[in-house]
């Protein structure tokens, strides 16, 4: 049942993406509204499927690649709804929705059966640690998209070019403001994610910090975002510099999330 609902949400996300792409081409608000309704539908179906899976499996379903990517996509969608509401940056959907679609399509091809929870994951920290981490990841994913857009938009302005493409992009100030919102929300999540992770580690492995590759890379990620906040407030690393750092931070997240598991191994190798 959870799988069926999941596929329903995949369909709704794809429809939403379709309408958001049309919206980019036509700039018609009605089209955006339709796309947004599909997105809301997708999010609701997706959320329900997770709840069902929770009951079917008996544990928080963020334990393998399928479950975590699926949760990531849900978080990105949810965060976009939030950003859209606060900043009225509707056109952003034309870039975020394709990203959600790609993730969700990959997810749809991964093995989806429910396995019994391995003993090392049986902990009260499982839902807390994973939720914090993936909310943070999702927010920084959005921030990555926003930052790439910032650099593209700024290039157009610096090069003194104005095309029908660039006229549809959000203004630099808006993109920068969204980036600030991403840091101010993503950083606390990341921090709590690391703290809960280390608490869990002390329970499971006997020490808070054991210089495991996952731990090292999450620290690097944390430092990158910490630097952004510090420099921004102190010397004004606004706009492009923030954007570059957010892109760097995102790559660091990718290494932490996927690279460590597939290339480096370590204790945290289940995901």
């Amino acid at each position: 049942m959870n799988i069926r609902l999941f596929y329903l949400s995949v369909g709704l996300y794809l429809f939403s993406t379709f309408f958001y792409l049309i919206y980019f081409a036509t700039v018609k608000h009605l089209v955006e509204r339709i796309g947004f309704l599909f997105l809301l539908g997708g999010i609701i179906a997706h959320f329900l499927s997770l709840i069902l899976r929770y009951f079917e499996a008996g544990y928080t379903p963020i334990t393998n690649l399928y479950e975590s990517l699926s949760f990531l996509a849900l978080c990105i969608g949810g965060f976009f709804v939030f950003i859209r509401h606060i900043h009225k940056a509707r056109i952003l959907g034309s870039f975020i929705l394709p990203v959600i679609s790609v993730i969700i399509i990959i997810t749809a091809f991964l093995p989806q059966e429910i396995n019994p929870l391995p003993p090392y994951l049986r902990s009260f920290y499982l839902p807390i640690h994973t939720t914090f981490c993936f909310l943070g990841n999702a927010i920084f994913f959005v921030s990555f998209v926003v930052s790439v857009l910032y650099i593209i938009t700024e290039n157009y302005i610096k090069k003194k070019r104005l095309t029908s493409f660039s006229m549809r992009l959000p203004s630099l100030e808006l993109l920068d403001r969204i980036n600030v919102r991403c840091i101010s929300m993503g950083f606390p999540f990341l921090t709590f994610g690391i703290i809960t992770g280390s608490l869990w580690a002390s329970l499971a492995w006997g020490s808070y910090w054991s210089w495991d590759p996952k731990e090292i890379w999450s620290l690097i990620t944390w430092l990158i975002y910490a630097i952004v906040i510090h420099r921004r407030l102190l010397v004004g690393w606004k706009g492009r510099k923030t954007a570059y750092m957010m892109i760097l931070g995102f790559f660091s997240i990718l290494v932490t999330f996927l690279g460590v598991n597939y290339l480096m191994g370590g204790k945290h190798s289940y995901l």
Partner: peptide, 10 residues
Amino acid sequence: VEMAKRIFGD
């Protein structure tokens, strides 16, 4: 004005 809007929005 148009370019100003590209930069500042509002």
